[in-house]
């Protein structure tokens, strides 16, 4: 691993994304990306009694699926990095408790997916591990229950609000494999521009995404057209618009090849999801389903994936605190 610039790292030994898996819920199935997901579940409870159990089942089944798909058996996997949004990351720990793989619980809000992959890449490049499993998940119902209001409450959602994705995505990274490869890492700093509106996460996270994006380009000396595509995690329509404009004002015109996973996963007009998707499962399922397939098809050869997270909880919002954002970036090349 070689550090370049202020906070970016070039991976020296190849870290291959051997395989990915993703399982999503019914609303995601109705979305435009449904053919890229491995499995779509019709019932949000997935036969379980509580939302929390259902979310752990998403984690468990997705992890098992990626293990089966990759052909690497569970006892060959050295570490597992996983996280979700529910208090103390219980969806991940409950979902993975039967797997018997050394486990690190990761919390980076919706940036968890890329954060896990960065940590996994570091451990593989540093020779601490050969195969690592990364997984992250979110569930609309458990997230609403914890962060907002009961599902049956008859309230209206403002246009800037986002829809938490029900689903989980997992990757297996390995020392050996034919790629696609993780080549550069840019872990992000916490950025807080004082946004307090929990219904406008996109705006709160956009500045963090901007910071990481600018850092990445400055550190590596690359320009936006180095990449075939640049994706952010879950800024939604509002955040995407802001990032586009702010990046341009910083001298990086990303408009032509930039998109956002939260924008891609739902059809805004048909599904009434307002500003788009969000949650750990958003970036995870769009990457593990859609983007990974495009990489395998060589449609994209070089991509930059920036997952964004709002580091908040329901108490801090009520206490009137602002919402700090974070964004982690990895570049993946075939």
């Amino acid at each position: 691993m070689k550090k370049v610039g202020k906070q970016s790292y070039i991976v020296e030994n190849p870290v291959a994304i051997v395989n990915t898996a993703t399982i999503v819920g019914p609303k995601e199935k109705e979305g435009p990306l449904n053919k890229y997901f491995d499995k779509c579940i019709e019932d949000e409870f997935w036969g379980e009694k509580t939302w929390e159990k259902a979310e752990s089942k998403f984690v468990k089944e997705t992890s098992n699926l990626v293990i089966t798909k990759s052909g690497i058996s569970a006892n060959q996997i050295d570490f597992c990095f996983a996280g979700d949004l529910i208090n103390q990351c219980i969806s991940s720990s409950f979902g993975l408790r039967d797997l018997s793989i050394p486990f690190f619980g990761v919390f980076g809000a919706c940036s968890t997916f890329v954060e896990s992959n960065i940590l996994a890449s570091i451990s593989i490049d540093g020779d601490f591990a050969e195969n690592v499993l990364c997984c992250s998940s979110s569930h609309f119902c458990s997230a609403e229950k914890q962060f907002r209001f009961p599902l049956e409450l008859g309230n209206q959602r403002p246009p800037s609000s986002q829809w938490t994705v029900t689903g989980a995505g997992a990757t297996i990274l390995s020392k050996n494999g034919n790629g696609p490869f993780i080549t550069t890492l840019t872990p992000g700093k916490i950025v807080d521009m004082g946004i307090k509106d929990a219904n406008n996460m996109g705006a709160a996270m956009a500045t963090a995404a901007l910071d990481t994006l600018v850092m990445h380009f400055n550190d590596t000396g690359r320009t936006p057209n180095y990449y075939d595509a640049i994706f952010t995690g879950d800024l939604g329509y509002v955040g995407k618009d802001i990032l586009n404009e702010l990046a341009k004002s910083k001298g990086f015109n990303i408009a032509s090849n930039y998109n956002d996973c939260g924008v891609l996963i739902f059809d805004k007009d048909k599904q009434d999801t307002h500003s788009g998707g969000s949650g750990c499962g958003c970036c995870a399922s769009v990457f593990a389903g859609y983007i990974y397939q495009k990489l395998l098809d060589k449609e994209y050869k070089k991509i930059l994936l920036i997952a964004t997270g709002a580091l908040t909880n329901s108490l801090t919002t009520q206490q009137g605190e602002s919402i700090p954002g974070i964004a982690h970036a990895i570049s993946i090349e075939v």
């Binding site: 246009p159 800037s160 521009m193 004082g194 946004i195 406008n200 705006a203 509002v238 618009d241 702010l246």
Partner: peptide, 24 residues
């Protein structure tokens, strides 16, 4: 863009308010 919205928290909040669609 006239002034830099990233200058301070207030200017960013103002910029965000402009960017955020209003309820019908």
């Amino acid at each position: 863009m006239k002034d830099n919205p990233l200058e301070s928290q207030t200017s960013y909040q103002k910029y965000v308010d402009e960017k955020t669609p209003n309820s019908p």
